[in-house]
Design a protein around this nucleic acid. Sequence first.
DNA 1: AAGCCGGGGCA
DNA 2: TGCCCAGGCTT
Length: 347
Amino acid sequence: MPDLHPITRQLLEWYRVHARPLPWRESPHPYATWLSEVILQQTRVETGTAYWHRFLEQYPTVKDLAEAPIESVMRSWKGLGYYSRARNLHAAAKAVMDQRDGQLPILAADWRALPGIGDYTAAAIASICHGEAVPVVDGNVQRVLSRLFDIADPVDRKSGRDAIRAWSEALVSEATPGASNQAWMELGALVCKPRNPACPDCPVREACLARQRGTWADRPVKQPKKKQVTMTVDFDVAIRKVDSRWEWWVERRPDRGIWGGLESFPATLTEGAGRDRDPQSVWGPVDHILTHRRLTGWFHLHTGDAASDLARCHPGGSWIPLDDADRAWPRMVDKVLPELRSRAVKN
DNA sequence: AAGCCGGGGCA
DNA sequence: TGCCCAGGCTT
């Protein structure tokens, strides 16, 4: 067994003092840790914490999660983004119940086989909950190690990834891998931040090559990202009145693609900014930014026969009450619900 | 290897 | 505006 690397020893002392009291650290168990790691994929701790509490409350065990309808899980995930995480989480819970007799994996390799669990998440759970000495590499670790060892290769190419991987394996604590993994991430989150890193507070500053060489602002090196594509989204909102109560037509979007698995008014996405719509007949524009798309939304209101026709053209959807709020739509739809409600009532 | 997938916060 | 966030899946 390799000795504890002196740099990691320094780091662990710092971590014992400065670790944030995050709720999933209080008494970690595999199910709760799994939930936290999936929720936190590409999601800030401040954003994910409330969702984690809600998920544990609504689905206390993997059995509860597996038996919950997917609509419920999607609704719980609403607003978090990257909705394939919710579908994969639910599928993995069912796989655990059906194929593993309800027993969660122990080894990272077995966690890795479940949907929605990649190298990072598998290593995080196995190291934190079972002491398996596998290193984690997330965005924090990429940044911290690329600075510490002044890695000039892009971290999103093989050469850079290999360098980060090699250092992470050399640095992981064999005795307390869960602590050292979380400590490296915590250092990135609290001290070695993307901008304005707090180098004077850093427990490993003496060893940091980027600090010595003045290259810290240029680490990590990443490939330039492509520009966002502009797209137009036309929503068809069909409304009708039944027994003095308003309803409208929603459909579930396919699992693949934007807002997969979420509910929405029937929507048509077209490339480009699109022609201006007539403000008399539609509500808009509503701008919305995704990671790789810049969307402009227009909402077309249909009533009477036009509403019936639209519903017929989109089988698989359903009429739902206008005041039904607790459903899993994307933020884009949420943004305009109040306006659409007031327009519907006037109609 | 590259593209796709949300939403929000911050300089 | 652009970048980043306890990434993973598909092609």
